[in-house]
Design a protein around this nucleic acid. Structure first.
Length: 311
RNA sequence: GGACUUGUAGCUCAAAUGGUAGAGCGUGGGACUGAAACUCCCUGUGAGGCGGUUCGAUACCGUCCGAGUCUA
């Protein structure tokens, strides 16, 4: 049986994925699955730069704007929903196009990474978090050293989050996560995929980010965040970790002035774009599309993408 | 015009009784496999110019240039 076709359009934030993806999807008869950890949330439109229905050009979108900001969202959930969407789309004879900047999410779907090993119980994680609060990471790092020294080679001691997860994994499965990761890494994709990474010169990217943040402020980001705050969404919620939301909340709570908040949003977004690029650089079988090499002309890029697609 | 302060890494600033200097932030690079817009790691030879004193000056002296504060 032939492999299922799948396209991916990703790249750092503000590279111009959204607009391009609409044209591309229309050309190939595709439907879009958003791979964005924040655009899943309702009431978070400005800060996530969520596409407006009138800009969708008739292309159907999945995994966007459906979750309450109080709810948690993570890779596993995304993977499950995305796989459902993929089969739904292909069952109707369309091509699934994954669009978004969360590389981890894309990987989870593309290589069908196995996350099914554990239950929902996170009491152990909570316990470890508390211990880190009180004792620092060192002690639990030592514990990880005993059960999974290979992970200690990879995870830096200061990276409490990853140390906790490694211990949690061991506790729940009796196996080291390092071993699991190793086998997952070997996987071949079961899709016939084209993985496009849209990018641009760094300075252009950065100035686009700055402009976009200014625009968000003009469009009323503050108001959007105030409304969320009024909905009693805790600052620790996954949704409130989103860029722009975190910083705005600290401004609203009087921890800094607006100017500072805006500066931080811009800076953190730049850092984020950099991290995204690092991620895509080490992904296999990626097709880089540097806008700079196509005179920043979407039509030229689109032509190139279609060429790859026909292959 | 006079008095004073000041000129150290892209930015904000340290330190060293004269023995060639660090921090934070930015920048750049990297990791990442149920939190990922998360979390974490690595990354800095740079003293305004010219003279002088000295074995040796970014530090002392002179001078020029730039910045700031006060003042007739």
């Amino acid at each position: 049986m032939d492999k299922q076709k799948l396209c991916i359009i990703t790249g750092p934030t503000a590279a111009g994925k959204t607009r391009l993806s609409i044209e591309f999807a229309r050309k190939i008869g595709g439907e879009i699955i958003s791979a964005d950890s924040m655009q899943v949330y309702k009431y978070m439109d400005i800060g996530t730069d969520k596409i407006k229905p009138e800009n969708m050009g008739g292309v159907r979108h999945h995994l966007i704007d459906f979750l309450d900001p109080n709810e948690d969202f993570n890779v596993f959930t995304f993977q499950k929903l995305a796989k459902e969407a993929v089969s739904d789309i292909s069952s109707r004879g369309h091509i699934p196009v994954i669009v978004g900047g969360t590389g981890f999410y894309i990987q989870a779907v593309l290589y069908d990474i196995d996350f099914t090993e554990t239950d929902e119980d996170d009491s152990y994680r909570r316990l470890l978090e508390e211990r880190v609060q009180k004792e620092g990471v060192h002690n639990i790092y030592e514990e990880l050293m005993k059960v999974d020294p290979a992970s200690c080679e990879i995870i830096h001691e200061n990276n409490a989050k990853r140390v906790i997860r490694a211990l949690e994994y061991y506790k729940k499965t009796g196996k080291p996560i390092s071993e699991h990761n190793l086998t997952q890494r070997q996987k071949e994709s079961s899709y016939d995929f084209k993985y496009f990474v849209l990018t641009d010169r760094r300075d252009i990217l950065y100035s686009r980010i700055d402009k976009r943040v200014d625009l968000m402020i003009e469009e009323g980001l503050e108001d959007e965040v105030r409304k969320l705050a009024a909905m009693d969404i805790p600052r620790t919620a996954t949704s409130m970790q989103g860029l722009g939301y975190r910083e705005m909340l600290s401004y609203i709570d009087g921890e800094c002035d607006l100017e500072r908040a805006v500066y931080l949003i811009k800076r953190n977004t730049r850092h984020f774009a950099k991290r995204q690029l690092t991620w895509f650089k080490r992904e296999r079988d990626v097709i880089w599309l540097d806008k700079n090499e196509y005179d920043h002309d979407d039509q030229k890029i689109l032509k190139e993408m279609l060429k790859y697609y026909e292959e």
